[in-house]
Design a protein around this nucleic acid. Sequence first.
DNA 1: GTCTATACTCTGATAGAC
DNA 2: GTCTATCAGAGTATAGAC
Lengths: 201, 201
Amino acid sequence: MPRPMTRIQIRNSETILEAALDVFSAHGFRGATLDQIAEVAGLSKPNLLYYFPSKEAIHRTLLTRLLSTWLDPLRDMDAAGDPVAEVMGYMRRKLELSRDYPRESRLFAIEILQGAPRMREAIEGELTALVAEKAKVLQHWMDEGRIARLDPVHLVFSIWALTQHYADFDVQVRAVLGSGHDPYAEAGAFLETLYARLLAP
Amino acid sequence: MPRPMTRIQIRNSETILEAALDVFSAHGFRGATLDQIAEVAGLSKPNLLYYFPSKEAIHRTLLTRLLSTWLDPLRDMDAAGDPVAEVMGYMRRKLELSRDYPRESRLFAIEILQGAPRMREAIEGELTALVAEKAKVLQHWMDEGRIARLDPVHLVFSIWALTQHYADFDVQVRAVLGSGHDPYAEAGAFLETLYARLLAP
DNA sequence: GTCTATACTCTGATAGAC
DNA sequence: GTCTATCAGAGTATAGAC
């Protein structure tokens, strides 16, 4: 990654990252080509490599930015808040992320599916630590009898799985639902019911 | 796909498909190379192309085989059986598929994630039709008051999401759980509880 | 800073000997 | 049926003009 100084440099870097997100999330790292990214960005291929030293550097920059956005809603789950409302709120924010940032969700999914070759440290470090911290909070709520007793880590997994499914498997979801449906609205209602029943002490 | 005749032809075709499953599920279609597949299969690259006309043909053969295996458990959900037991049984068999065939799960996931370029017809035809059929069965059970009233299609989505997560995001699941865990055993217990609470009328 | 032209590597597929 | 050798095309990255 370069050190963007001027306005133009910042703007071009952002344009490249935006285009790269489009292409990487649709075709994976190997499936994406610099030609495609350059075309979407409206820049020449060598110009891309003026702003970033390599294809890999562009990809790595996207993943790094992504992770913090991805973990923010979990970070916001407040030990001092109402337990059911906090878990519900987390689920809701995570579903909104899937709805509003489906490309980011798919980029992340492809990376993990392929064994996280460019994210292992972040997964094993930052993400694992945050889940461990929040699992303690959940366990505490369960011990107080304020939410149902469940495996707290798998409870977090369930929220990830159920919300990300709508972004990652979007093609399948829309095919099965047919036209005239709003997948995310329906998912929201379904998941509210699911977690209301699951979490009740 | 060729028409295997002799024993050797059949055996070699199977060896190639087995190796291809390994490589495609780990790196995606574009990320996989014939060199890698040939090495895993213990055959030469031209020999691969003697048995299959192209890289794409190998991939397509894998996807075609996969889909029917993948849909079998849902097909087995019996309208005449006990509703809760049938849904639970479907969830359980789907989780077993994730545990026993994680490579197939990832192959399928990568394909859908990238917009199902080689599976669209199957998704829009066979899969959509089967879900529609089974959604009617679920709706009927709900109308009879034998399971809780929920959106039947999203109920199916939830089973897919929650079970496939353990195969597709295996790296992340194991990193977060740490060593000394059996992800599928824990998932089984968690999902039994989840669906018991969710389905109770 | 941005472009044209190009070097170099990888990869899918084919030719042809055995 | 299987191998060695090789072609043709795509793709990342660089050189060098402007």
